[in-house]
Design a protein around this nucleic acid. Sequence first.
RNA 1: GCCGGAGUGGCGGAACUGGCAGACGCGCCGGACUCAAAAUCCGGUGGGAGCAAUCCCUUGAGGGUUCGAGUCCCUCCUCCGGCACCA
Length: 829
Amino acid sequence: MYDPKRIEQKWQGYWIDNRTNEPDLDGAERPFYNLMMFPYPSAEGLHVGNLYAFTGADFHGRYQRLRGHDVFQPIGFDAFGIHSENYALKVDVHPTKLIPSNIANFTRQLRGTGIMYDWSHTVDTTDPGYYRWTQWIFLELYDAGLAEKKEAPVNWCPSCKTVLANEQVIAGECERCYSQVEQRMLSQWFFKITDYAERLLENLDHIDWSDTTLTAQRNWIGRSEGALLRFPVARPKVADDRYEPAQLERERRMIEVFTTRPDTVYGATFMVLAPEHPLVDEITAPERADAVAAYRRETAALDLKERQKADDRGKSGVFTGAHATNPATGEEIPIFVADYVLMGYGTGAIMAVPAHDQRDFEFATEHGLEIRTVVAPTDEHAGEAADPELGAAFTAHTENERLVDSGEFSGLAAAEGGRRIVEWLAERRLAEPRVNYRLHDWCISRQRYWGPPIPIIYCDDCGTVPVPREDLPVELPYVEDFKPGDDGIAPLAKDRTFYEVDCPSCGAAARRETDVSDTFLDSSWYFLRYPSVGDDERPFGPARTERWLPVDTYIGGEEHAVLHLLYSRFITMVLHDLGHLAFEEPYDRFRKHGLLIRDGAKMSKSRGNVVIPDEYVERFGADTFRAYLMFLGPYDEGGDFRGEAIMGPHRFLNRAFDAVEAAVESGVTGFPDPGVERALHATIKQVTEDFARLSFNTVIAALMELLNAIRAGGRTPTVDEVRPLAIMLGPIAPHLAEEMWELLGGEPSLFDHAEWPTWDEAKLVTDTVEVPVQVNGKLRATIRAARGATEDVVKAAALADEGVQRHLEGGELVKTIHVPDRLLNLVVK
RNA sequence: GCCGGAGUGGCGGAACUGGCAGACGCGCCGGACUCAAAAUCCGGUGGGAGCAAUCCCUUGAGGGUUCGAGUCCCUCCUCCGGCACCA
């Protein structure tokens, strides 16, 4: 039995006094940057979810340390943002008061966990010394033409009263408050992340990340190959005679559409514009104006989620009275406005091919429009052609389908036909190949208080003027009433002393931007700051950046697969292109961890199944709690937190400590028992390999097995047997391991002086092996044979076995399978 | 609907490139210690038949490949996560 409280205090004190966890940032020879996602400092304090994430990362960091690396493992606080601000509103405490006390509380809790943080290099995103560089990054993007203010349909959260990035809208709801998100046309600051879509996608092939995270990013970027097609809008018939044909052609409006199926253009029998499409007013015939306006009002009133409920509402839409020319057939086809076409994807307009697109098919059926088949099914699919009776479009698009009713392209395979059609239309500038992305530009304006002000000044004469670099930071002023308003006007717009400013360019009275930037901009570069904390001259110093970055291992939650992880890749790539960084990918290796659940459900306050770590730490100590968290399931899958199961790791650590005490007391050295020695080498091998692949639950199981072998039959272990055990326990139970190391006569700290144990393959093999003998694939006996025994020898021994003989009776031995030292299988007929 | 991931004892979970399924732990049962309980220590523990040696069954369901399948292939079911009228 050991006293966790005493030794944990002892070693935590030792680590601080001796700066054990602070690597030499300027001189480290084997630098290893071990990063974990910095927390948002909630008022509730540290919860098990945080601790689960950090503990796994700490296992990894301490393992790398014991493997001889100089590990830099910092922590900080992502303290700006809507989450913090909403909480401040709820409890009616100003964020400038609330957040510092939350950070202080978090810091106190984290210091008690024994995690190997370098407390001399922490980051707080609300510190002007930090966000002045966040603003600097904004200006760098602005100067590079990658930040622009534009009118665009944006997501508006009516409860948070701010716009949200696309990534922050989850199934039509605000990711923070779960309100239904609305669409609004607003002028906002955007970062042109879409310019980087291709590179963000391509680089995914070259970085060592969890597969699921890579897949999530690929899906989010959503690349589709196809073509941009132009459909000339037909003038109303009555007006035609006022124009010369040539002039008519020149002045014709084009409706651009994106399609992945240019091969079906001969089957485009109508067009559809999204209700928000800018051309709608212009093309709508006067007699249809009222109906179209009514429809647009109706759809505008729907929030995102209602709009997506296609099943309930069917395919609604109205005819505009206008027509466009199908560039392939030359026929005039009607133009509709319908909300099944989204302004946010492609061009906000489509060519509708009801025969080969299910949505268009439904719309055509509902509105009585022509359905024209232009892709013929092969024999295999005969009978699957678009058919109103069947209620389905024919959408197969493999090399087997061929084009029909498609002019000179009839008879071609669909894919080939599509390419040829695009080439043909391209000659008349009516088509061009196009790659389209689902990814949108990153909207970074927030009409909120708790964030870094966007460093822009608007001047009547000079226009948009960036704040000069030397005037940074633009400090967030204290605004007593920081509540957001319904009107989209930011809280900072209430503070005249803030927004009234002289134009830095001409000196005339001007006005500051009063929106703040998205929290995800704060967190998009924090890992660049850590090594250079304290440097007030620049965001990150070249020497330290060169030594420590990119990050060696980043461990974090899958919930940021497309948010933080995509944004920080983008910002890193931009900083690389602007010459500030030598690398363009921030994290060499990313591993996601799983989610802790309890009673089969995600932990949440509303369910009342949240685990408070403090009680467990108080009762069993931080070491036991760490071991339990990592033992309850595979780290990348998470697991079910069952409080009573903590007894396993608790007993294990106590037994391990007792073993060390017994060994020291006996003073016996060496490896008197070959079985124990073999177990030791096998364990070192497995533990070393499993630590490397972050398989912590099997590491702990292997060490438990080793301890069982060492203490089998109540035997007294030797000093040499338990020393490697103590070292391998280092990443798991650091305080206890230090105590054991000291007991064994090692010089503290274990993490500075212990060498990771090595194994000898020769020690793993035994002279004899147990060979399972199967008859027809079923186990009938195991025989003992010399290692490397030949098939003849093993077979002879097997045939002599009574149990084997019984199963061979009455049959003829037709085949023998022998895997040396592993198995013998006798096949009888 | 699309894209991921997963279904193994009472429970959490092991099983490297196909080769003794159920490691390790929780729980439970029995025993030791104790006046008793907790803690601790020792033994047992997938299901079924049998006094027993032993035999049969068993990795969500069904089929296949193979000397041999939890692992590979096909079909289906269930659960979890993500995206979702994406043209």
